[in-house]
Design a protein around this nucleic acid. Structure first.
Lengths: 246, 246
DNA sequence: CAATAATGTGTTTAATTTACACATTAAACG
DNA sequence: CGTTTAATGTGTAAATTAAACACATTATTG
């Protein structure tokens, strides 16, 4: 321990010139963004994948990604890549984590920043004529190309956590939805079953749902009421939780 | 909307050669790690800062950081930089977020990955003879160099959140601590006051504290019992919370 | 028009969190 | 040496929240 401590210098004594030299020459690395695009359809949580075009990963699916340009903000790159792939720009997008093992990409050193996006499959019908781009039920996602399985697993876990803390899920639903839709969404994301009556009570007590006085159409059972989410009310009332929950 | 959708291609049609060319030539960016090193001393949460050596930020404090080598795993770089600055390697370290605006660093394009580390100031006395490296009470941290204020704020918020979900705080305490120490820690991190009796009850009910049958020494009041944390018990019992908490 | 399978609305019970009161112990001080 | 002081240590009652559960209502199906 003592020896280790003696090794510590703390000091950052590089001049701007030295740093500039390092930044411009020897120490540069390719940086990419990978988008984990979640959707919700047919009461199932889906993720958008593309077939890998590298021989090494022939037949495998991968996330949608691309390199970040040197003159481009990281977040801007995420939006650009998302738009290139889906045509959409007005969607929820959030940085999740950065993956940087040396040998994660066969083309050389590429560090990648994962961004999670939630899109509404109903509103945002993609023109997926191309068979190489496809929505996958998250339950059947395995053995992705590169380290994309790790990235996907990380993002799914983060989504599961975040959706319990913030009303993210509404980004995956149409503007008008029934309580059954909402519960199906939570059950699909969290992979659990919930009590219908307590679920309903919970959301009503939060008072973020607006009754639209409309009913479901063309359902093979008694139609449920339709609601929309009140974002303004949420912004005002959102909870800053304090407590210890190990 | 339709026009946007028509722009979307989805396809990633680059060959390995094209990607390799991009990775090796035009699209490389300097990547750095910045360490946010938290400590707990004198009932206050502290962060380790170094004085910036760039003229642009003369007199300002900054986080400890350095460039990632092209042949170095990202996590390994974080551990290396932490060790260079503090001499320590057996500490809690966690990636927090990546910051990548184009003009965040005066030496050129540098994307930085923030890592948060929690160290025990008692066990890990750094040889901070150098006046340029200093522990700062988090309440007095403002106007850091670069975008380090943003990075620091982000890490502090994440710590506040994480410490309520997992027993991270124990990394900041000595192996033996009193319940008062533990409560001071939580109050310092969360910047709140808690009821002493309910705090005690909460931690005892979790059953992760081991009574060492020792008492505090040299305190100017009735000595409290000393405890240690039982990590094994935590691993077995840790809660997978399911619920909706907006 | 009866059977079915949903929606919609409770109540009751258990668990958890919050608020609060009092006895105990060691140090400090005259 | 005894009193004051300022902590620690233990508990109890109320309030809130979460969990378990029952039944009426409505539209569709056959």
């Amino acid at each position: 321990m003592i020896t280790e401590e003696k090794m510590a210098t703390g000091k950052q004594s590089k001049t701007l010139q030295v740093i500039q030299s390092e930044v411009e020459n020897t120490n540069r690395i390719a940086l990419s963004v990978d988008c984990i695009i979640f959707g919700f359809d047919d009461a199932k949580l889906k993720v958008l994948l593309i077939r890998s075009d590298l021989k090494k990963y022939a037949g495998k699916w991968s996330l949608l990604g691309d390199l970040v340009f040197p003159n481009e903000d990281l977040d801007a790159a995420a939006y650009r890549i998302l738009k290139q792939r889906t045509g959409l720009s007005d969607v929820y997008l959030e940085q999740v984590s950065t993956f940087g093992t040396v040998s994660r990409h066969p083309a050389g050193r590429v560090v990648t920043v994962a961004y999670c996006s939630l899109i509404n499959v109903q509103h945002h019908k993609l023109n997926i004529l191309d068979n190489e781009l496809h929505w996958h039920d998250i339950k059947s996602v395995n053995d992705l190309a590169f380290d994309h399985q790790l990235i996907f697993d990380t993002c799914l876990k983060q989504l599961q956590k975040r959706v319990q803390e913030h009303p993210l899920g509404f980004n995956l639903l149409p503007k008008k939805f029934s309580l059954r839709d909402l519960q199906n969404l939570y059950e699909a994301i969290l992979d659990i079953k919930m009590d219908r009556r307590n679920f309903r009570k919970k959301f009503f007590s939060m008072d973020f749902l607006v009754d639209l006085n409309e009913m479901e159409q063309n359902v093979p059972h008694r139609p449920g009421k339709l609601y929309k989410f009140n974002y303004e009310k949420y912004e005002k009332k959102k909870k800053k939780w304090i407590g210890i929950d190990f």
